[in-house]
Amino acid sequence: TGIVNVSSSLNVRSSASTSSKVIGSLSGNTKVTIVGEEGAFYKIEYKGSHGYVAAEYI
Rank of each mutant, 00 (worst) to 15 (best):
T1Y: 15
T1W: 15
T1A: 10
T1R: 09
G2D: 04
G2F: 09
G2A: 07
G2C: 12
G2E: 04
I3T: 09
I3M: 08
I3Q: 07
I3L: 09
I3R: 10
I3A: 05
I3K: 07
I3F: 14
V4T: 07
V4W: 04
V4Y: 04
V4H: 03
V4R: 04
V4A: 05
V4M: 05
N5W: 10
N5I: 13
N5Q: 08
N5S: 09
N5V: 11
N5Y: 08
V6T: 13
V6N: 08
V6I: 13
V6L: 09
V6W: 07
V6F: 08
S7Q: 11
S7A: 12
S7W: 09
S7M: 12
S7Y: 09
S7L: 12
S7N: 10
S7C: 15
S8W: 15
S8T: 14
S8P: 11
S8H: 15
S8Q: 11
S8N: 10
S9P: 11
S9F: 14
S9R: 14
S9V: 11
S9H: 12
L10A: 10
L10R: 03
L10V: 15
L10K: 02
L10H: 03
L10G: 03
L10W: 03
N11K: 14
N11I: 15
N11F: 13
N11A: 15
N11Q: 14
V12I: 08
V12D: 01
V12Y: 02
V12W: 02
V12S: 01
V12A: 01
V12N: 00
R13N: 08
R13M: 15
R13H: 15
R13P: 00
R13V: 08
R13E: 01
S14I: 13
S14L: 13
S14Q: 14
S14M: 13
S14K: 12
S14V: 12
S14E: 15
S14F: 12
S14T: 08
S15Q: 12
S15K: 11
S15E: 13
S15F: 08
S15P: 01
A16K: 03
A16H: 04
A16P: 14
A16N: 04
S17E: 07
S17N: 11
S17Q: 07
S17G: 07
S17D: 12
T18D: 12
T18R: 12
T18G: 11
T18L: 14
S19Y: 10
S19P: 05
S19K: 12
S19H: 12
S19E: 12
S19L: 12
S20Q: 02
S20K: 02
S20D: 03
S20N: 03
S20T: 06
S20C: 05
S20E: 03
S20G: 13
K21A: 12
K21W: 08
K21E: 12
K21L: 11
K21N: 10
K21F: 09
K21D: 11
K21R: 12
K21Y: 08
V22Q: 04
V22C: 08
V22S: 06
V22L: 07
V22E: 03
V22T: 06
I23L: 09
I23H: 01
I23R: 02
I23E: 01
I23T: 03
I23D: 01
I23N: 00
G24T: 02
G24K: 02
G24M: 05
G24L: 03
G24V: 03
G24H: 02
G24Q: 03
S25K: 14
S25T: 15
S25E: 10
S25Q: 14
S25R: 14
S25M: 14
S25F: 13
L26H: 02
L26P: 00
S27D: 11
S27F: 11
S27P: 15
S27K: 14
S27N: 11
G28R: 13
G28A: 14
G28Q: 11
G28D: 08
G28E: 08
N29I: 06
N29C: 15
N29D: 08
N29R: 11
N29M: 11
N29G: 15
N29A: 09
T30R: 06
T30A: 11
T30H: 07
T30W: 07
T30N: 05
T30Y: 07
T30M: 10
T30I: 08
T30G: 05
T30K: 05
T30L: 06
T30P: 03
K31I: 14
V32L: 05
V32W: 03
V32E: 00
V32A: 02
V32N: 00
V32H: 01
T33C: 14
T33N: 10
T33E: 06
T33W: 12
T33Y: 11
T33S: 08
T33H: 09
T33I: 14
T33G: 03
I34A: 00
I34D: 00
I34T: 00
I34F: 03
V35F: 07
V35D: 02
V35C: 09
V35Y: 07
V35W: 07
V35P: 01
V35E: 04
V35S: 04
V35H: 04
V35T: 07
G36A: 10
G36D: 07
G36M: 06
G36S: 08
G36Y: 05
G36W: 06
G36C: 08
E37M: 15
E37Q: 15
E37R: 15
E37T: 14
E37I: 15
E38G: 03
E38R: 06
E38L: 07
E38T: 07
E38C: 14
G39V: 03
G39C: 07
G39H: 05
G39M: 04
G39S: 05
G39T: 03
G39A: 06
G39K: 06
A40R: 10
A40D: 12
A40Q: 11
A40P: 10
A40C: 13
A40G: 14
A40Y: 08
A40T: 09
F41N: 02
F41L: 03
F41G: 00
F41M: 04
Y42R: 02
Y42C: 05
Y42G: 01
Y42V: 06
Y42D: 00
Y42P: 00
Y42A: 03
K43A: 05
K43Y: 06
K43R: 09
K43L: 09
K43N: 02
I44Y: 01
I44S: 00
I44M: 02
I44F: 01
I44C: 05
I44W: 01
I44L: 02
I44T: 00
I44A: 00
I44V: 05
E45R: 09
E45C: 14
E45N: 08
E45L: 14
E45Y: 09
E45F: 08
Y46I: 03
Y46P: 00
Y46D: 00
Y46L: 03
Y46N: 01
K47M: 13
K47W: 07
K47D: 10
K47S: 08
K47H: 09
K47V: 05
K47Q: 12
K47T: 04
G48Q: 07
G48R: 05
G48E: 07
G48V: 03
G48C: 07
G48A: 06
G48K: 06
G48P: 03
S49D: 08
S49T: 12
S49Q: 12
S49Y: 09
S49C: 09
S49W: 08
S49R: 12
H50W: 15
H50A: 07
H50T: 10
H50D: 05
H50C: 09
H50G: 04
H50Y: 15
G51H: 02
G51Q: 02
G51R: 02
G51L: 03
G51I: 03
G51D: 01
G51N: 01
G51V: 03
Y52H: 01
Y52G: 00
Y52A: 00
Y52C: 00
Y52S: 00
V53C: 03
V53Q: 00
V53I: 07
V53H: 00
V53P: 00
V53L: 03
V53W: 01
V53S: 01
V53R: 00
V53T: 01
A54R: 13
A54M: 14
A54K: 13
A55W: 06
A55N: 06
A55P: 02
A55M: 15
A55F: 07
A55E: 04
E56I: 14
E56D: 08
E56F: 09
Y57H: 10
Y57Q: 06
Y57G: 09
Y57R: 06
Y57W: 09
Y57D: 07
Y57K: 07
Y57F: 13
Y57V: 04
Y57E: 07
I58P: 02
I58F: 05
I58L: 06
I58E: 01
